[in-house]
Design a protein around this nucleic acid. Structure first.
Lengths: 143, 143
DNA sequence: ATGTATGCAAAACATTTGCACCTGG
DNA sequence: CCAGGTGCAAATGTTTTGCATACAT
């Protein structure tokens, strides 16, 4: 099992039952090396194009979906019209998104996590996941 | 200003700068009287069709968007592929959604709200809104 | 060899928009 | 009357899928 911030390897792909193909390896590299941690399928596709790779957009979608199923990446819907993906670093966290420059900050708060479980429990729900995203203006965008 | 759970009226439409037209009134009625509180545009459209109303889907989308801008309804993206709308009852709340039967429970937790502001503040963000949704199995769906 | 993966083009969806016609105040 | 609203059809943008070909093991 993968732990922490180690780079993903061919091994991780095989462990997920996925053949080690060029598109998959390249897409993993993009997710690891891009300057933003949260990328849309289109983002990944463009980066690959600019790097001279010949990988179709459909493949990017298929691979990202497989990676998500394998637990290698997480999918988020900060904006309603498209999803973004980030490498799963093993540590759960939530997000604060700047509504101006789209900067994303990650945070984790034990108290909120606990409270969520208590609340879910109170209503008889067995929680499998949650999505918490704060939207606002970051320091830079407030002048 | 509207307060609490009173039914929305023509007055509310006028106050929002919207003419009181049949589609708008009927759509408000659907939101008020439907058995589920959270409806997609398609849901609203079908209910209108079944009621014999001749209102286009495009109009439903336009009206719901105007209602949202006017603060009469709130839009949520529980699932990535479509939005749902609910009447704004004046009280902020978050949601727990059953991943099996899609039941939605609303809750409000002061501690989580405060904690979110503290965290945002710590990172220099001025929060304008947030989205917190818990996903899991409700009591009924766990047999 | 052979079951998977991929690229491309087309399809599928939710949502938006252009435009000629209708309607509320 | 006339600005604003509506229906319809067409356009949009994202994501998915069918299928013939290419590739990893």
């Amino acid at each position: 099992m993968r732990i922490g911030i180690n780079a993903l390897t061919d091994r991780d792909l095989r462990d997920a039952g996925l053949k080690v193909t060029t598109p998959r390896v390249k897409i993993l590299e993009v997710l690891e090396k891009a300057n933003q941690r949260h990328l849309s399928a289109e983002n990944v596709y463009r980066i690959l194009l600019e790097a001279g790779e010949d990988i179709g957009l459909a493949t990017v979608y298929r691979v990202l979906t497989q990676f998500e199923a394998a637990g290698l990446v997480n999918r988020h819907n900060f904006e309603s019209n498209h999803a973004v993906f980030e490498l799963d670093d093993g540590k759960h966290h939530d997000h604060i998104v700047c509504i101006e420059c789209n900067k994303v900050v990650e945070f984790f708060d034990e108290m909120i996590e606990e409270r969520q479980l208590e609340i879910a429990n109170r209503y008889g729900f067995a929680i499998s996941e949650h999505a918490l995203t704060l939207f606002g203006l970051c320091q830079d965008c407030r002048q």
